[in-house]
Design a protein around this nucleic acid. Structure first.
Lengths: 223, 223
DNA sequence: AGCACACTGATCGTATACGATTTGATGTAC
DNA sequence: GTACATCAAATCGTATACGATCAGTGTGCT
């Protein structure tokens, strides 16, 4: 772990805890004790406290006054809510980013999607998941509205944290995802309107969301 | 304002500064000096610092390391971005809240909208703005997804902070808003699908956004 | 045995203190 | 008069310290 030396200690604490939650080193329910983390980082509790409050605001940790912080538990409802939020924001971000999607971008996206297809052939779910995240980053990454971009990034981070802990992937969706990605890229190549791009992107995410809901025995999402 | 005495001091600092920004007591660019605010609250700088960092995460203040915090400046781009974000999230929240909109709710919403119409007759823009906020709160308030609800509330808070500082209202839109509200309520009364409700709500906000953009000489929003 | 209550250890919340950094002003050389 | 170096005041960042609060445990009473 290479820490950026110019960053403040509270920033370092934020990065450390955040990363450990997202990649699953701290599982849900894990107790985040200020003093312990402070010792580990070689700093005092004040910056650590600040970092943890920030993570609380992002929903990654649960905080109780005078008691302390724990890594947030993930239940199916929370997962649904996060997915639903992302389902609304990400397609909009993608549509707004449409202007920046030139031929070069398109070639890159297509190549990435092909690699994902190859991962499926090779039964490599780990790479697939990584590339899937990368692909979606490519989709929304050029969104010119920083608020929206920020929301999407946070949404993905939360999903990553949830998946790292316990959630199983739905493998059947993987193949369909690749096909839907391709259709979306075709649409972009054909200079579809932002509204059309948004609709297609939202449909893609809705499929994923509803597949999850169905597997969990829950009703499909209203929107 | 009755402060809850059990709340922590950092909470109190957050509430104080937040409220002052939203109602315009602190204008954009105002320098938030930790020590000064701490003195005013009768506490030390540590909780104040925490509160300010939280406000930074919400985008209400701008923060520079080793320099300090100022109330965020509002330019037309920022305003556009905030409106655009709200335009995407609020309609979704409204659609998701559709289940909770019963006859009683509908009567309340209709009454409020009529009061808004009356405000226009009486040339009372202050009440109109207050009621408009209230009306929209009614629309999205029952959204069962807490993340989405939170995002909408924050969006409105930011808008309020921006308006408090400098932005002039666009009076021509006021009358159209009331009509659009009514159409939206009719749609809900007719048991429209959530998707239809979302589309109508989004159209309403898009009109407001585009009216602003046009007035500012900017191109209409892509979505 | 079961309940109530006080006690204890752990941990949080914040005051205070001090070093680090920035900013703006002052003075000096050109 | 301008550019640059130096310095001082203001302010931030965080370490340390201590009081406040909570969860768990043991003891005594019924």
């Amino acid at each position: 772990m290479v820490a950026v030396m110019t960053a403040s200690k509270s920033e370092a604490a934020y990065q450390l805890v955040s990363e450990r939650i997202v990649n699953g080193a701290y599982s849900p329910g894990y107790r985040l004790v200020l003093g312990t983390i402070a010792d580990e980082l070689g700093c005092s509790v004040v910056p650590v406290r600040e970092a943890i409050r920030r993570l609380e605001a992002e929903g990654l940790v649960h905080f109780t006054r005078n008691v302390g912080a724990t890594v947030a538990h993930v239940d199916s409802t929370l997962y649904l809510h996060t997915m639903q939020t992302l389902m609304i924001i990400e397609p909009a971000a993608t549509a707004l980013a449409a202007d920046a999607m030139d031929a070069k971008w398109l070639a890159k996206a297509r190549a990435l999607n092909e690699s994902m297809r190859q991962c499926l052939e090779d039964f490599d779910p780990v790479s697939f998941t990584r590339m899937n995240t990368e692909f979606h980053q490519l989709l929304y990454g050029q969104c010119p509205n920083p608020h929206i971009l920020d929301l999407v990034q946070r949404g993905w981070r939360r999903l990553a944290a949830m998946r790292a802990s316990s959630f199983t992937h739905i493998p059947n969706r993987a193949r369909a995802s690749v096909e839907e990605h391709e259709k979306l890229l075709d649409l972009i190549a054909d200079h579809a309107t932002p509204a059309q791009i948004e609709a297609a992107a939202r449909e893609h995410r809705a499929h994923t969301l509803n597949a999850y809901l169905k597997a969990a025995g829950m009703a499909p999402s209203a929107i």
